[in-house]
Amino acid sequence: MKKLLTLLLLCLLFGNTALQATTTLESYRFSDKQDEQRFKSLVSQLRCLVCQNESLADSDAELAHDLRQEVYEMMLAGKTNKQVTDFLVQRYGDFVLYNPPMKPSTWLIWFGPFVVLVIAVLLLFRSLRRQRAVTQQAISDEERKRLQQALQQSTGKDAQS
């Protein structure tokens, strides 16, 4: 009986928190299902500036709540995604965007990894070519004779010991 009661309590506890987490976004009503999807994807691409590793969709911070409301109202007013993100970027900077925009100051972020990849491939080819060059080099007859002598000498010594 006691076990059953604790189980029931646990269910209530966790069921409740799970419900709360999902209701934050559900409380924004849209007449159009498509708009609702657009809202959800938009707020999950925007960063909350208070708790910086959370999106506006996930964050429970006061500011995130206000900004969600702002985005919601702008959408109801018929603003496009670009207009909404521009509004926030003008006030909070590119930092609100999880995807950094393409511009000279972010080129390093966007192209840096590919530049490193190209350099690595070039280095790989160079060292491969060099290896092949070394293996293809044949030894001369003179060298072969000395090699055989050396081998015979060492095997002879082995036999003696």
Partner: peptide, 13 residues
């Protein structure tokens, strides 16, 4: 009161 001016000024804390 509602923090609207704050948002326009980019206030986050």
């Amino acid at each position: 009161e509602d923090g609207r001016v704050g948002i326009n000024w980019g206030v986050y804390g």
